[in-house]
Design a protein around this nucleic acid. Structure first.
Lengths: 265, 265
DNA sequence: CTTGCTCCGTTCGCTAGCGAACATAAAGCT
DNA sequence: AGCTTTATGTTCGCTAGCGAACGGAGCAAG
């Protein structure tokens, strides 16, 4: 239960360095490994746009769903990316230090953060305003933009998978799996043995048998030698964990009516 | 133990459609949602390069570490992305159907697949040769290329996190966490309460206390009110699961001597 | 030096899922 | 029809990690 704990000491506002610091310490931007890997001329071109920022312990750079306004190029400290379940249980799925950046959604997608980012060890960063960054990607064609957007989707799925594996029951995950497959099949049947599902979920086959048995007794599905028929989709969705709905929502956004609203300026 | 099970019915070779099929069914490429979302002129520009492929059940499109030669734009069926532990336990972390593609590493990174991709429900795809795809990204600057490469890294971390959460013990994960933080701190000490670590790992604080106690008794670390000192890094690495080494290896490749060998042709 | 707070240690009962072993039944082959 | 293979059902003991509750120790500020 993350909300109740205040061990994160959240700050509402970051601590910004004075302008003097910006001017005095421009070379330290090279402590970020990505900036350091740039050819000199690219680095110098970006230099005027880099804004020095302090990353205090416990600062939440962004929450899930927040709009991102900057690309943060970390020079020191550690930022954890994590996500929460409905119950408030949390799971980090990646760490970022001076080798990386925060703010990928600015060029992958519409600039809405897909996860939370928390400073777990204090440090510093140089940040770049969103428009400056987007300018770097302006020459991409429509296919490239769509592929980047899909990359964001995949990242969403992977992070959700990490959270789900940690906190949700086998039965919930089975519902999730069945529904996710169903969405891609335009049918209410899928051909898939329990053994295969067990391998994909990373659990024992017996566990799947048991969970599938429960679903069958409850009248949600019918199982027969590698053929699952979904009988009551609504109740199956109710049995699934929120992961299904979260990922699906992101998918419909990806491909929905509001297609490409932000990445084509 | 994935290797022993043959429920995947792996095929060594994909089934290719005859050229007639390629010519007869070009419109069905639009069943892929990404191709369908393209402006007409972009779609028509790509059409000559699209090659129709059958995705038979059980075909492993790529294994982890394989070079990718094509971007597969799925039009029907389901592909699961998964990864294995050293012991052979598997975990899928994402599904891809007609809304997506397989082969992101072609433009994100050096074209080496970071995970396994298995056809879990048969279908079809249109595929694009790697050079054609890379051509779409040729106008990107060096910063953009590095950011895409970092995106790949993040995806690696997220997928590893999903596997780790499923299969590895709390103690292993704690070692992993400590080592990952250490790498980003240039010191053998880190300031981090057990409560914070517990939240980030998605486990109980008591569990961290117990695991940390074991590590302390074994003389690997010293713990004191939010300050961890690593005493024997080598043995700590031996206690950690492989996830640490895998992610670290990918990182050093990202930033190592062989910097940008493939994405700058 | 004492009060309050934060952080760590420990305990006990409980449950989900594991591992292994075996039973059954449908599908397919000859 | 009979045999083999494959897929599902069932059982039993076991363990890691959960939930809740409490105890204690270091640190800081007055």
């Amino acid at each position: 239960m993350l909300e109740r704990r205040d061990s994160f000491r959240p700050y509402s506002e970051p601590h910004f360095a004075h302008r003097e610091q910006t001017l005095r310490a421009p070379n330290t931007a090279g402590q970020n490994r990505i900036l350091a890997a740039l050819p000199r001329q690219d680095f110098e071109r970006l230099l005027p746009y880099l804004e020095f920022v302090v990353l205090p312990l416990g600062w939440r750079i962004h929450g899930a769903g927040d709009p991102e306004k900057y690309l943060y190029l970390i020079t020191a400290g550690i930022v954890a990316r994590f996500y929460l379940t409905e119950e408030g249980a949390s799971t980090a799925f990646a760490l970022t230090g001076s080798e990386g950046v925060i703010g990928l959604s600015l060029f992958l997608d519409n600039g809405i953060a897909p996860s939370h980012a928390l400073v777990v060890s204090p440090g510093y960063a140089y940040r770049l305003r969103a428009p400056v960054l987007k300018n770097e990607f302006k020459h991409l064609g429509s296919l490239s933009h769509l592929l980047l957007r899909y990359t964001q989707m995949l990242l969403n799925q992977a992070q959700q998978s990490a959270v789900c594996n940690r906190h949700h029951s086998l039965e919930q995950q089975l519902c999730c799996w069945i529904l996710s497959c169903l969405d891609r099949l335009s049918s209410n049947k899928l051909s898939m043995t329990q053994e295969l599902i067990a391998n994909m979920l990373g659990v024992r086959r017996e566990g799947v048998t048991e969970a599938a048995g429960k679903l069958q007794k409850a009248g949600l599905v019918h199982y027969s030698r590698g053929h699952i028929t979904v009988l009551d989709r609504t109740r199956l969705e109710a049995h699934a964990c929120e992961c299904y709905a979260i990922v699906k929502r992101a998918h419909t956004r990806l491909l929905g009516l509001g297609l490409l609203p932000n990445i084509y300026p």
